[in-house]
Design a binder for these strands. Structure first.
Length: 807
RNA sequence: GCCGGGGUGGCGAAAUUGGUCAUACGCGCCUGACUUAAAAUCAGGUGUCCCGCAAGGGGCGUGAGGGUUCGACUCCCUCCCCCGGCACCA
């Protein structure tokens, strides 16, 4: 037996797999198919243990499914646009394209060294010209349908640098990262996708996909559906209606003031009519410079009385109108009816500004609290101080109130979503250009399909200077209008990288198509993705955007499905010192050094054995050594078996163990995604095999152990498979099947309990009738000692397991 | 505040439908073998308390407290702690 040499074996098999094109897959519509997809990486410096985890899980599943007869597509690519590469360039590094392509080279080499079984012929980068081309093509279809549009929206603006800032360029203190100036919020025209049109469907379809509860819950929360009513309050002095959204129309009689967000469209006109115009403008200006975090913390409520009045449509009461920044402009209607008796925020504000507090619901058996207090909401409330609605249960009362207002045209039932349209324009360089021009005559005009792709021009300076960096490229910017031929300027903003990641899995299916983004036929064959794998950090934005994108493509007739991912598996974080590995924590550990020291197989086994893959796991180097030890042990035991002269006599114990292990390892990958216990089961088998490597079933046990460990440690498994004299490659070998007959037992170990406590166990034949089991249990001397002459009141028999005597 | 996950040996963890002395598998540690020695490897041990020279036997033990059950890590109730997400969302 030669010693185990991980480096040599892994190089050998990687070369063989590549030569034999083991993991390349055709688009022939063979069934069953399986699309195993991992979230594509951003090509920053090197791989880290988080990548190691998610890509190894995907690889284990892909290798397992191939050997179970599935036509498996398992692709990889690069999310290569985005801020880090651009920021590196600004700090004096290489241009984004150069650094990104260098990183891709190096990460690809690391991935190949780990032996992940990708079909590299399908590799793509989101900054590839043809990827840009077909993304722009799709954008134009969205644009034509009005699903991409421009509107003013708040952006972070540095008044000194005269530039828009990305959120991560604003410090925790709300200052510009570069110059330290307090950042302001400015309204600027931005591009949006109309994702809100799909809010209800995005919510409903969560019931049709198999996501973990936590992920589905987060998406539901993000979409944020709430049922309520919109009620019109008339502002007396302006003779203008202000709609407010409320989920508690039952408390309408308790409204004692009205509050508008500082950004509300009526604020200017209100200021004009108010004798406090100066103060109002000052308040609004201050609210705009307040950083969102501070505003959200909401430690003390501030606001300003406009002096104007709003009329409550339910009782014609005149209420003071306030402007206060605890009301958000982008939720509901940007205006609220304030019910301080039943809303904590309104209550705080009412206390601060000495406004009346009127209780209008009380619990059914409670009293009305006269102390101007806040009343906790309960499930069992009736209306009080609410005119004709007094005494009604709160939900019914609320309904009746809205019905009456609706009849008068002053209100309606409505559903409000928290999700907002997806702002996808970025005032940055390193992204996919938005293919439109601005024409003085025709306005915003989409570029002709024939002129795609619109590629990024080379520029000198990547810093935004009042304008997005692309504005410097004047030759590129100045163009002609595709419609009228007159002078026009190109859009200088680029797309959010979440656009890139909304359809990459479609392009993988048909990556070299030069006629269209993808062939619908091919995409419809491979999709939806059968198993999507990734971290929880993309549970909301990326996944919701991709789901939206697919729904639109379905509406456009490009794909015949409406959900991109049938199932999602969320892997846990890899932690070090109980902190999530991250650049910020400075505790990143990469696989490369361990692969070099212990081999890829040991590292793959280690990350899968560390703990349940969907939970956080603490990285320890000691455990990699343990896995290397296990591989050497496997190596030795298998060689002993290969060299032994098997005896013919011996029990069926080992054969049963082998079959039990097949059953467990198969269920653990196929159904439970419990990779750690599957590996443990194979270890148990190897331990048992090591006690007798020359038994009648030892060879069968060795072959099976090697076969079952293959998804985790494929290189050494292939090598040992070959050394056991097996025909063909393990990657093509069918996954072992359980021999049910071998699992059959003639006897089983009967557990005897007295009052639920185990007192004895012994082998009995499986076909013994229940009364005989009980008789044998009673006959046991150990059991008798505990029964101790007491009367046995009951005997519980669990077939094939135990007898419990109750005394 | 709301949503989700978790709490089991010295450590990572297992127990899949309530049913095998709970702790598989691995790490660490202890003892022994091999060695001049160490590493590596191999063999054995390793929850806790008590009785016993020993073989052996018994009690207690899955964050805390209650409950259901013949039987609870598993189900129910109350509570504590840790991690993640969302959050002035009306």
């Amino acid at each position: 037996m030669d010693p185990y040499d991980a480096q040599a074996i892994e190089a050998k098999w990687q070369e063989i797999w590549e030569r034999e094109r083991a993991f390349e897959v055709s688009n022939d519509p063979v069934q069953p198919k399986s699309y195993v997809l991992e979230q594509l990486p951003y090509p920053s410096g090197t791989l880290h243990m988080g990548h190691m985890l998610v890509y190894t899980i995907g690889d284990v599943v892909a290798r397992f499914r191939r050997r179970n007869g599935m036509h498996v597509i398992h692709p990889m690519g690069w999310d290569s646009f985005g801020l880090p590469a651009e920021n590196a360039a600004i700090r004096g590094g290489d241009p984004p394209r150069v650094s990104v392509e260098r990183n891709i080279e190096s990460i690809r080499a690391s991935m190949k060294r780990i032996g992940w079984s990708y079909d590299w012929t399908r590799e793509l980068s989101t900054h590839d010209p043809d990827y840009i081309r077909w993304q722009q093509w799709q954008f134009l279809r969205f644009f034509e349908r009005g699903l991409a549009y421009r509107k003013p929206a708040p952006v972070k603006w540095c008044p000194v640098d005269q530039t828009v800032l990305a959120n991560e360029q604003v410090t925790a203190e709300g200052r510009c990262e570069r110059c330290g100036t307090l950042v302001e919020t400015r309204l600027m025209e931005q591009w949006f996708f109309r994702i809100t049109d799909y809010a209800q469907e995005l919510l409903d379809d969560l019931d049709r996909v198999d996501y973990p509860d936590s992920i589905a819950g987060r998406q539901r929360n993000w979409i944020g559906r709430s049922e309520g009513a919109e009620i019109d309050f008339r502002i007396e002095e302006l003779d203008e209606d202000v709609p407010v959204f409320t989920t508690r129309p039952d408390t309408l009689f308790g409204a004692t003031f009205l509050v508008l967000a500082p950004e509300h469209e009526l604020v200017t006109r209100i200021a004009d009519r108010s004798d406090r115009a100066g103060e109002i403008h000052e308040y609004v200006r201050r609210a705009a410079t307040k950083k969102t975090e501070e505003r959200a913390a909401g430690e003390d409520k501030t606001g300003i009385d406009t002096g104007l009045h709003a009329v409550n449509p339910v009782n014609d009461e005149r209420l003071p109108v306030f402007i206060a920044d605890y009301v958000l402009t982008d939720y509901g209607t940007g205006a609220i009816m304030a019910v301080p008796a039943h809303d904590t925020r309104d209550f705080e504000f009412a206390q601060a500004y000495e406004l009346p507090i009127r209780q209008v619901v009380r619990s059914r058996d409670g009293e009305v609290d006269e102390s101007q207090a806040y009343t906790e909401h309960t499930d069992d409330e009736v209306l009080v101080n609410s005119g004709a609605f007094d005494g009604l249960p709160a939900p019914e009362g609320g309904r009746k109130i809205v019905e009456r207002l609706a009849a008068e045209g002053r209100g309606k039932f409505t559903i409000n979503f928290r999700i907002r349209d997806w702002g996808f324009s970025r005032q940055r360089y390193w992204g996919c250009p938005i293919p439109v021009v601005y024409c003085e005559r025709d306005g915003i005009v989409g570029v002709d399909d024939a002129d795609l792709p619109i590629l990024l021009p080379e520029i000198e300076d990547y810093r935004p200077k009042g304008q997005p960096p692309l504005a410097q490229a004047t030759e590129w910017v100045n163009t002609t209008c595709p419609r009228c031929g007159g002078p026009a300027r190109r859009e200088t903003e680029t797309m959010d990288t979440f656009v890139d990641s909304s359809w990459y899995f479609l392009r993988y299916c048909d990556p070299r198509n030069e006629e269209e983004p993808f062939s619908s036929e091919v995409v419809n064959y491979w999709n939806p993705v059968d198993l999507y794998l990734g971290g929880t950090d993309h549970a909301t934005m990326h996944m919701i955007y991709a789901r939206f994108w697919i729904k639109v493509l379905n509406d456009l007739g490009c794909v015949d499905f409406r959900e991109p991912f049938d199932a999602f598996f969320a892997n846990g974080w890899v932690t070090l010192g109980n902190l999530k590995m991250s650049k910020r924590a400075g505790n990143i550990v990469g696989p490369d050094v361990f692969v070099e020291r212990y081999g890829a197989d040991a590292c793959r086994l280690n990350i899968m054995f560390l703990g349940p893959a969907d939970q956080d796991m603490e990285w320890t180097e000691a455990s990699v050594e343990g896995m290397a030890r296990f591989i050497r042990r496997l190596w030795r035991v298998v060689h002993e078996v290969a060299e032994a002269e098997p005896s013919t006599d011996g029990g069926a114990e080992l054969a049963r163990k082998v079959n039990e292990t097949i059953a467990k390892a198969t269920d653990d990958i196929g159904r439970r995604f419990a990779f750690n216990t599957a590996i443990a089961a194979v270890m148990e088998l190897v331990n048992e095999l090591s006690r007798d490597t020359a038994g009648p079933d030892s060879r069968f046990a060795a072959e099976t152990a090697v076969s079952l460990i293959y998804p985790y440690a494929p290189h050494v498994a292939e090598e040992l498979w070959e050394r056991l004299g097996q025909e063909g490659r393990l990657y093509q070998a069918p996954w072992p099947a359980v021999d049910e007959a071998a699992l059959e037992r003639e006897t089983f170990e009967l557990v005897v309990q007295v009052n639920g406590k185990l007192r004895d166990r012994f082998e009995v034949p499986v076909d013994l009738p229940e009364d005989e089991l009980v008789a044998r249990a009673k006959a046991s001397p150990k059991v008798q000692a505990f029964v101790d002459g007491q009367q046995i009141r009951r005997a519980i028999v669990v077939p094939r397991k135990l007898v419990n005597l109750v005394v």
